[in-house]
Deep mutational scan, measured.
Amino acid sequence: MQIFVKTLTGKTITSEVEPSDTIENVKAKIQDKEGIPPDQQRLIFAGKQLEDGRTLSDYNIQKESTLHLVLR
């Protein structure tokens, strides 16, 4: 499924993921596309910071959901 990751600069990254993918996994995909190390990434969805060990389905993230990427 496709999800969108919006950066603070307003850029939107499209990523191909599975509901069973972990947040860590998603951060790795963002690193592949943007070159941002996962340890600098914080992903936010519905006002919550997403934890690395959890999966997209844990957070009820569905296709075409938009996550927000904040850098630390």
Rank of each mutant, 00 (worst) to 15 (best):
V26D: 00
G47C: 06
V26Y: 01
G47T: 04
Q31Y: 15
G35P: 03
N60L: 07
D21C: 05
I3R: 00
N25G: 09
D58S: 14
E16P: 05
L50I: 03
L71Q: 07
F45S: 02
R54L: 11
V5C: 03
K63L: 06
L71S: 08
D39F: 11
L71G: 07
I23M: 03
K11A: 08
V17E: 01
L67I: 13
S20Q: 10
I13E: 02
G10L: 03
K48W: 08
S20F: 10
P38G: 09
I61H: 00
Q49G: 06
V17P: 00
V26T: 02
D58N: 05
T66S: 04
E34S: 14
I61C: 00
P19Y: 07
K33E: 09
R72A: 13
E16A: 08
L69N: 01
E16V: 12
S15V: 15
Q62V: 13
P19K: 07
E24A: 15
L43R: 00
I36N: 03
S15A: 15
S57G: 11
D52K: 04
N25W: 10
T66P: 02
D21E: 09
Q62D: 09
N25H: 11
D52M: 04
K33I: 14
T7M: 15
E18Q: 13
T66W: 08
E24C: 07
R42C: 14
E24F: 14
K63G: 13
I30A: 03
L56F: 04
R72C: 11
M1A: 03
L71K: 06
T14A: 09
S20T: 13
T14R: 10
Y59T: 01
S15W: 14
T22H: 04
R72Q: 11
K63A: 15
G10A: 04
S65Q: 08
L71I: 12
K48T: 12
L56P: 00
G53I: 07
N60C: 06
Q62R: 10
L71H: 08
L43K: 00
A28R: 15
T22F: 08
K33V: 12
E64F: 15
P19M: 09
L56I: 10
I44C: 11
F45V: 02
I23L: 04
L67K: 00
L56D: 00
T55R: 10
E64T: 07
T7Q: 06
M1G: 04
V70T: 08
N25S: 15
E18K: 14
L69E: 01
R72F: 12
T22K: 08
L56W: 03
D21I: 04
Q31P: 03
E18G: 08
G53V: 07
Q40M: 12
F45R: 01
Q41S: 06
F45L: 05
K27W: 05
G10K: 04
A46M: 14
I61S: 01
I36H: 09
E64C: 10
K48Y: 10
I44E: 10
E16Q: 12
I3Y: 00
R42N: 13
K27P: 01
L43P: 01
K63M: 10
L56V: 08
E34K: 05
V5F: 09
Q49L: 15
K11H: 12
L67P: 01
Q49M: 13
S15D: 04
P19T: 07
Q41V: 12
H68G: 04
E51V: 07
Q31D: 05
L50E: 02
K48Q: 14
Q62I: 12
H68T: 13
I44K: 04
M1D: 03
I3D: 01
L69T: 02
E16Y: 14
P37R: 09
V5Y: 02
A46I: 06
D52A: 05
I36Y: 13
E34G: 06
T55Q: 08
T12V: 14
I30Q: 00
N25R: 13
P37G: 06
M1S: 03
G35V: 03
G53T: 10
T9M: 10
P19I: 08
T55G: 02
S15Y: 15
K11C: 07
V70R: 09
G35E: 04
A46S: 09
Q49Y: 14
T66E: 07
N25Q: 14
D32T: 10
I3L: 06
T9D: 13
T66C: 05
Q62A: 09
E16T: 12
Q62L: 10
T55P: 05
P37C: 05
A28C: 07
Q62K: 12
V26F: 05
R54Y: 12
K6H: 10
E24M: 13
K11M: 10
I30S: 02
V70N: 05
R54H: 12
D21V: 03
L50K: 00
R72K: 13
E64M: 11
S20W: 14
I36D: 03
E64G: 15
L50S: 00
Q49I: 15
D52Q: 03
Q49N: 11
V26E: 01
E24G: 12
I36F: 11
G53C: 07
Q40S: 09
Q62Y: 10
V5W: 03
E34Y: 14
T55N: 04
I13F: 14
V26I: 11
I3N: 00
Y59A: 02
M1Q: 03
K11Q: 09
L43T: 00
